[in-house]
């Protein structure tokens, strides 16, 4: 065998081993990637309705802080977390329930009694008592949640929205 034949034989097997390894590697990485990325593609659950009881107790100027207990599937466990919602009145003086999550970067927005506004402590987005945007970096007003009155109770559907975008997009 001349060295030329030996060298081309070596490069043939080099390419063969290399390319088959690449193919096998790609095939093997499919189940691994599916396994690791599973939570990304798992479809979220439908948001649930929570009772805020008698709507009559929100007849004052407000706003009222209310808590909902959200039970959700958290990986392999069911967890119950408390979330805050604000019961406010819109400009037409109708009841409105808004999420306390700032549409900017997701901080919890508290009510400032001295300023009579919602004032986000993170980047100073300000919202009117109705939840409408006043000033600051938030792309939109505080997010109103779907509500209904049933059997004399006020019900709210706890939804979570995509942040940083001007339009509301439900993500969970």
């Amino acid at each position: 065998m001349t060295s030329d034949v030996g060298s081309s034989r070596r490069s043939f097997f080099g390419i063969l081993v290399g390319s088959v390894s690449a193919v096998v590697g790609v095939i093997m990485s499919i189940p691994v990637m599916r396994f690791l990325l599973f939570p990304v593609f798992r479809s979220g659950e439908e948001a649930g309705w929570f009772s805020l009881r008698d709507p009559g107790r929100f007849s004052g100027p407000g706003p009222y802080r209310a808590e909902v207990e959200v039970r959700r599937l958290d990986g392999w466990r069911v967890s119950t977390v408390k979330r805050t919602v604000w019961v406010v009145h819109d400009p037409q003086n109708q009841l409105r329930v808004v999420s306390d999550i700032c549409p900017h970067l997701g901080c919890s927005v508290p009510w400032r009694d001295d300023e009579r506004i919602f004032h986000c402590p993170c980047h100073h987005a300000k919202f009117m008592p109705s939840g409408d945007l006043l000033s600051g970096p938030s792309p939109r007003s505080l997010d109103p949640l779907p509500i209904k009155i049933e059997n004399g109770s006020l019900w709210v559907k706890y939804e979570v929205f995509r942040n940083l975008v001007p339009t509301r997009e439900v993500i969970g």
């Binding site: 189940p31 691994v32 599916r34 396994f35 599973f38 392999w76």
Partner: peptide, 20 residues
């Protein structure tokens, strides 16, 4: 408390978990 649940979760819920 959690070992068995997490393995069952992989086995039954996570994509390709049973296979891995």
């Amino acid at each position: 408390d959690h070992a068995h649940t997490t393995v069952a979760f992989m086995q039954k819920v996570v994509w390709g978990g049973r296979f891995i």
